[in-house]
Design a protein around this nucleic acid. Sequence first.
DNA 1: CGAAAAATGACGATAGTA
DNA 2: TACTATCGTCATTTTTCG
Length: 654
Amino acid sequence: MLRSFSWPILQVKKMVDNNSGGEADNFDWDTEDDLEIDNYAISAPSGLSTPCGEAVLGSAEAGSSGNSPNSKIIDHFVGMGFSREMVAKVVEEKGEENSDLILEALLEYSASTLPSSSNSKLIDHFVGMGFSEEMVVKVVQENGEGNTDSILETLLTYSALETTASVQQNPDSGNCSSDYEGSLLNDFSDFDSFSESEEIMSPSSEEGRKLLHLTKMGYSEAEASVVMERCGPDSTIEELTDFICAAQIAKAADALFPLEDKKPFSNGSSHKKRRNWGYDLLLRKKKLKLEKRFDEDDDAVHLPNPMIGFGVPNEPDQITNRVLPEAALGPPYFYYENVALAPKGVWTTISRFLYDVEPEFVDSKFFCAAARKRGYVHNLPIDNRFPLLPFPPRTIHEAFPLTRKWWPSWDTRTKLNCLQTCIASARLTDKIRKALEDSDGEPPLGIQKFVLEQCRKWNLVWVGRNKVAPLEPDEVEMLLGFPRNHTRGGGISRTDRYKSLGNSFQIDTVAYHFSVLKDKFPGGINLLSLFSGIGGAEVALHQLGIPLKNVVAVEIAELNRNILRSWWEQTNQRGTLTDIQDVQELNGDRLEQLIKNFGGFDLVVGGSPCNNLTGSNRYHRDGLEGKDSALFFDFCRILDLVKCIMNGTKSMII
DNA sequence: CGAAAAATGACGATAGTA
DNA sequence: TACTATCGTCATTTTTCG
C-alpha cells in the first residue's frame, strides 16, 4: 500500500524542480554522450521519459490550476489520489510548509483507510497517479482488486511499453532507430536460431509463433501481446524483444524511484543522477553495442588469469584498495554472486546495474580442492582480508587421502572441476571399469584419454582398482566448506542434496571476502540474504565469528529453507531468522516493515539463479533475460529499495 | 496396486585459452 | 586451430510409500 502511494512523491519533486515538464516525449534517445546524459539528469529532471511521464504532466497541470500557495499544495496532493478532505485536514494540522510531514501523514491515513475502499475508489486512486482510466480498469480486472502491488507492477509495465514505443516511433529521433535495431541483431542472434528451429515444430500463424517465442523467452502473455500490438504485425522478433527489454529495465529502475525520492526536497547531485539510472543504463548499453560494432569493446568485462580477483591467500598480486563509484557506497554493503563463464555481455550488464562496480572474478580452486569460477560484485572493503582457518585441503589427495592408493599416474589432476548439480551415472563408472580391465598394467593412450575426459567431466575420483566414482554428498559439503551433513536429513533425497549443494557458495571464498566485516560489526550484523539456498552467506559469517542478529532469508525451495532453519537451530543462533518464500513478495512495504523492526540491513547478499547463464544448460542458456536468471533484476530492485528506505529512515532520525 | 518420489541416462554450445 | 570447462534439463525408468 505504501508503495503505491509512494509514486506521487516523485511527482511533487519533479513539479517543484521544474514545472515545464513538456519535453518528456522528446527525450533524445540518440544521445551517446555520457556528459550530456548527466547534464540532462541534473538540469532537466522533469524531462525524463519515465513510464509515469503522463502522471508528471497531469499533476503539474493540476498544480498550476490553483492560485494561492495553500490551494496549490492541496491540489498537488489531490492530484496524487488523496481525497481533498484528507489533504485539507492534514495541511491544516501540519502546516503547508513541510511537505515531508504532509506526505507522511497522508500515507499513514491512506494505509489505514484504503483497504476498505471500494473498487471505484481503487481505480480513482491509480487514475489519480496519472494512468489512463481505461488501462487501470483493465489491469484491475486482470489482477483483482486485492493485490494493489501487482496492479501497480502491471500498470508500470504497460506504461513503460507505451513510453518506449512512442519514443522509438518518434520520427524526430533521427537515425537512432536504424542504428539501434541493427545493433540489437547481435544481441538476439541466439534467439533467432532458436526461433528457426521452433518454427518447424509449430508452423502456426506468424503472430502465434511470435507470441510463443516471446512467452518461451519468459515474458508473460500480457507483456508479449501488448508489445506485439504496439509494434505492428510486421515487427521482427528483434524489435519485440527490444521493447520488452527496455520495458523491463525501465520497470526495474522505476520500481525504485518512489522511495528514492522519500526526501522530496533534497537536492544532492548523486540523488538526481540515480533517478536517471535505468535510462542511463539503456543508453550505455546501446553505446556499448555500437562500440562492439566497431570492434572497440573496451567496456567488455574480461576474466583475469589467474582468476584471483583482488587477491587470494598465499598468492602475490594483491590489490588492497579501489575507488568505488559514489552510487555504490553503502550502507548497506552488498554482495552479488554468479557464474563467471556467462554468455558475452552478461557481466557488463550486471555491473552496470550494480552501480558500475567492477566484478571480482575468483576461482575457488585457490581456497579448496575444487574449481568454482564465479564473479562477485560487491562494495566491501578489500584491504585486511583474512581467510578462515584452518585452511581446507587444497588438493584432491589432501581432501581424499584414500584415493591415493588407486590413483593412476597418468591421471595428473590435482584439483577437481566445478561441483555441479548432477553426478555421473553408475553405468558410466562401470563402463570405465570395464574399459580399464581389458588391459593389464598401463592402459592404451586412447583409453587413458577417454577415461580422463570422463573423470574431468564428472568429477570422478579413484575409489578402487580400475574403479572411479562420483563424490558423495558429504564430500561435496566438505569441499564447499559446509559442516558435514549440513544438507542431510529432513527427508531430503540424495539427488536434491547434490542439487542444493551444486547451487551454493564456496564458504571459504565468500568468507574471505566477508572477513573485512568482522571489525566493523563486533556486535553482529543484520543480514538480508536473497536466493539464500542452503545458507552459504549465513554459514560463512558464522564461521568468521560474526554474530547474526537479524537474518531475513528469501528462498523459493522449501527443502533449502528447512536446511537453513535446521542449521540455525543446531548452531544455537541468538538472533532471529525470518524466512520468505519468494523475492517477489519482498516489496517496499514488506521491506519498510522489516527495516523499521531492526533498524536496517548491514549486508545484502545474493546469488541469483545461474541456470540460464551456465554453459551446462543445453536448452535455455538465454542470458539475463532467461526465465530464472532474470531474477537478477529483483536483486537490484530489492537492493535499491533497501538503500532508499534506509537513507530515508536515516534522514528522518537525524 | 497405483500414485508419487527418486534415480537414471541422453542430450551440445559457447567462450575462453594455449 | 585444438583443447578445455561449464551452480543443467528433459523424458523415461525404477523405487518407494500408502
